[in-house]
Computed example of a mutant assay.
Amino acid sequence: MACVDCVSGNVHSGSSIGQEITLAGLPTYATGDPDSKRIIVIGVDIFGWNFINTRLLADEYAARGFRVYIPDLFDGRELPQWTLSAVAADTPTLLQRMLRPLSLFAFVPFILRNSKTAQSAKIGTLLKQLRQTQADAKIGFIGFCWGGRYAITMNSDFDATVACHPSLVKYPTELDNISKPISFALAAEDPAGFGAVRGKEAEKLLKDRGLTDLEVIIYDGVHHGWTVRVNMADEKKKQARDKAKEQALAWFEKYLTIASQ
């Protein structure tokens, strides 16, 4: 399911340092050492590949030695950022409270345009090109909110994945393809449906199937979408955002390891 927090949050300040390229026919933000054999593909939330928050986060990953790509999975038609100011996550005005339900209507045509089949095909085509051109690289995928679903459904295609507050997950059937290392970063209370209770259920289910390279970390006091759209002026929530960033980086540093020559 989707929720109000899927279309709300804060815009972060800063300037990205990467470049815009074309990868597998998709406009893509690329950052980090182009010769790195440790690659991270980001599955964006509904605000798309141009969203400054996601680009700044990608730059932070790149600073740890990864090559990072943010492909445009929405054909340039991401959700407009006016919904963020219309539905401010922390201290909304009366008008903003009234606009919150209305903003979800912008989400409906977005869902219709971007089916699971279409999204999976784009991610799969990009991954295929990376496998062909960089056969000796390790490739991970991290998804946020909308993109978090594909960290689950396409886990077996990558070397490791991280799912941050995934939405629209068909549980438990979409966990069937998980066979590679996967890490979950979840808000304790998540109206999008993948909070602490669901996370603990998924952890048990996957462990019962024999998956050992697995972690589920629950964050209290944050809302759905906090890993990319948190209010950075709120120190406690910023700390949670930074901990989730370190969670993902530690996971990829562990599982996107290149054997010594």
Results as ranks from 00 to 15, higher is better:
K238D: 04
A121N: 01
L99A: 13
M1Y: 07
E60F: 01
R198I: 11
F107K: 02
S15Q: 12
V216D: 08
L127I: 05
R113N: 09
P92K: 11
A135R: 15
E60C: 00
D157A: 15
L57F: 01
G43N: 05
L256I: 03
D176V: 07
I142D: 05
L112D: 02
G43S: 01
V216C: 07
K200T: 11
L23M: 15
D157R: 15
L95F: 06
Q261K: 03
K138L: 04
T83Y: 00
H224A: 09
L211P: 07
L168F: 13
F110V: 06
I123N: 02
G65F: 04
H12A: 02
G147N: 10
A88M: 08
L56F: 01
E60P: 00
V162G: 05
S8E: 09
D242V: 00
L23I: 06
M154E: 15
Q81Y: 02
K243S: 02
N10D: 08
T161C: 12
A24I: 11
T212F: 00
T117N: 12
F158D: 12
C6A: 02
V11A: 03
G199I: 07
E215A: 14
A118C: 04
T153W: 01
V169E: 13
E174S: 11
V197A: 15
G43V: 06
P101D: 04
T54W: 03
S167M: 15
L256H: 05
I182V: 15
E215T: 14
M98A: 15
P181R: 06
P71H: 03
K200V: 11
A250P: 00
Y171Q: 09
Q134D: 11
T91A: 12
D176N: 13
A240G: 05
L206M: 08
L211H: 07
A121Y: 00
A259L: 07
D242C: 00
S15F: 06
S115K: 14
L84S: 10
P71G: 04
V44S: 15
L94K: 14
C3H: 04
H224V: 08
P71I: 12
L205G: 09
W146F: 15
F144T: 09
R229Q: 10
I217D: 14
K237T: 05
E253V: 00
P80N: 04
A202G: 02
I139S: 04
S167H: 07
P27F: 06
H223R: 13
R198K: 15
D75T: 00
F107H: 02
A202I: 13
F144N: 12
A151F: 09
M98E: 06
V162K: 11
T153R: 12
E253M: 02
R55H: 03
I258P: 04
N53Y: 08
I40P: 00
I178H: 08
V230I: 10
T93D: 05
R67Q: 13
C6N: 12
P181H: 10
R198T: 14
A86H: 04
D136I: 01
Q132K: 12
D208A: 09
Q119M: 14
A196N: 11
D5T: 15
R55V: 07
V108P: 01
N114Q: 09
K207Y: 02
E246S: 09
R198Y: 08
N155C: 08
